[in-house]
Design a binder for these strands. Structure first.
Ligand SMILES: [Mn+2]
Ligand SMILES: [Mn+2]
Ligand SMILES: [Zn+2]
Ligand SMILES: [Zn+2]
Lengths: 137, 137
DNA sequence: GCCTTGACTTAGACCTTGTCCAATGTAGGC
DNA sequence: GCCTACATTGGACAAGGTCTAAGTCAAGGC
């Protein structure tokens, strides 16, 4: 997290209070917040931060490869700070909670040449769906 | 496609010109149109069809299990008439073209118990990403 | 330390996607 | 052919997201 700020400074980022707060809000495991959720949490620490700045900062972090965009549902995009270790997602259909998961094997190799239609395939995303223990109870 | 209309009539659907045109627009393989694309194509055949009716009809077809919603990008939902044969998607990152694909193996069994976090896992979606032959040229 | 400047932030207008509603039209049973 | 419950319509509305012009400020140079 201050690792992150360090990397960003090295890439010429100005260290503003707003950017610092957004970075802080995104710290942690299994974090997949929407832009408005990030804004709400950032506002607790820095009341005057604007929605536009949150969107700007999230967009920049995505461009820099420090954040991933995840669109699991048909609602708002979620932002995933776990961009350094490849992983997939397990989503609760009832409450929307998302966990990072690491399936075995390589999903890419499961797509035979005959099913590639001449595409150059570079990646694959898996989204598992189910019901979380909390919602099951 | 008239199969579809047949099934729908059996389920109590009124056969209106609007619904017929939406069903026609959705016919074919590897079709993954947005609601506005469906509306645009439907308008060519039936100029007075409204956006609300297109949304209504698409929503009903989804409820009836005749259409799938696909959200591969972070933009508009796409509607997939290939609801009868399970499949996954291969997406061109440049132009957005989507193909239906059928990978080998079972992605569900690739998620070990230790990575399920107590969830009851019921399904998995795969999205392959790459560049289509058209965009590569 | 202070100045300078280009990068950053801000409020709010605006756009796109999608939902909702009251008024109007019509498919299909009789 | 009539009736009526179901379908369609235009437009208002809402959420998520983008853009802009004006003001602010981090940080390098002195
Ligand atoms: Mn994640
Ligand atoms: Mn498909
Ligand atoms: Zn849940
Ligand atoms: Zn392409």
């Amino acid at each position: 997290m201050s690792d992150l700020l360090q990397r960003l400074r090295e890439r010429g980022w100005r260290l503003t209070a707003q950017r610092r707060v957004v970075a802080e809000v995104l710290a942690g495991d299994h974090i997949h917040l929407t832009a408005d959720e990030v804004h709400a949490r950032a506002t607790e620490r820095l009341p005057e931060i604007s929605r536009a700045t949150v969107y700007n900062t999230l967009g920049e972090l995505v461009s820099l490869g420090e954040l991933l965009e995840v669109s699991t549902d048909h609602r708002a995009t979620r932002y995933d700070p776990n961009a350094r270790r490849p992983h997939h997602h397990l989503l609760c259909d009832r409450c929307g909670t998302i966990r990072d998961v690491h399936p075995t094997g390589d999903a890419l190799s499961a797509l035979p040449e005959s099913e590639r239609f001449g595409y150059t395939v570079s990646g694959v995303e898996l989204t598992y769906r189910g019901i979380c223990p909390n919602c099951a109870a």
